Amino acid sequence: MIPAIETAPAMLLLWTAVGYLLGSIPFGMVLAKLMGLGNLRDIGSGNIGATNVLRTGNKAAAFLTLVLDGGKGAAALILARVFAGEDAAQLAGFAAFLGHCYPVWLGFRGGKGVATFFGLMFALYWPLGLICGAIWLSVAFIFRYSSLAALVSAAISPVAVLLIGRPDAALLCLGLVALIYLRHGANIQRLIAGNEPKIGKSKATDSAKVE
């Protein structure tokens, strides 16, 4: 369920801190400011992710936010893997996800973590990333709910790691699933109530898509 603990405790703490700091970089807000798009807190859902950046009308900024939010999770995990080990890598990856969702610079009010989740899945083990991505695309295509696609894809990940022979990553995936469901609480309520906006329907208050 977890990787073998082989890295010294001090190094594990170091890479946890590095992961959190990388994950807490609010690329959406940085790009919005650099490109003169305004304060994301005053736009749409007020979230810092790619969907809210897209509400500014700048597709390039939204795409860059999506890539960078995914990339920072992947970078944290890969760097820790290269310079320490798999135990440090998984801790750094989880810390990066925490950093994105709860960045200290923004009063612990961050994004929903979906882009960072996919970055982590591909960096952890690329077949796992492909599986999660395929599930997201399938659910989104059939039901037209981006939030539902993210929730289902995340929920499948702990099972997928067992099936593809990476049981050491199961606990990491379970932790990520718990945080994703926590961050999507409002979306889950709207899905149950039947008033969650579908993909392609733009609403100023919609926070349902990938943040």
Results as ranks from 00 to 15, higher is better:
2 I>E: 11
3 P>L: 08
3 P>S: 10
5 I>N: 12
5 I>M: 14
8 A>P: 09
8 A>Q: 12
11 M>S: 13
15 W>N: 06
16 T>P: 02
19 G>S: 08
20 Y>A: 09
22 L>R: 06
23 G>K: 03
26 P>I: 07
26 P>T: 05
27 F>D: 00
33 K>R: 15
33 K>A: 15
36 G>T: 03
36 G>P: 06
38 G>H: 12
43 I>C: 08
51 T>N: 07
56 T>L: 07
61 A>Y: 01
63 F>S: 12
67 V>R: 01
68 L>T: 02
72 K>A: 07
79 L>G: 02
86 E>N: 11
86 E>W: 13
86 E>L: 14
91 L>P: 01
91 L>W: 14
95 A>H: 01
102 Y>T: 00
102 Y>A: 00
105 W>D: 03
108 F>C: 04
109 R>E: 07
110 G>R: 01
111 G>C: 08
119 G>T: 01
124 L>R: 09
126 W>Y: 15
127 P>L: 11
128 L>T: 04
144 R>P: 02
146 S>V: 14
147 S>D: 03
152 V>S: 06
152 V>D: 06
155 A>H: 02
159 V>S: 11
160 A>H: 12
162 L>I: 12
165 G>T: 11
166 R>F: 11
166 R>H: 15
168 D>G: 14
168 D>E: 15
180 I>G: 01
187 N>P: 07
200 G>S: 08
201 K>G: 01
207 S>L: 05
208 A>T: 14
208 A>G: 15
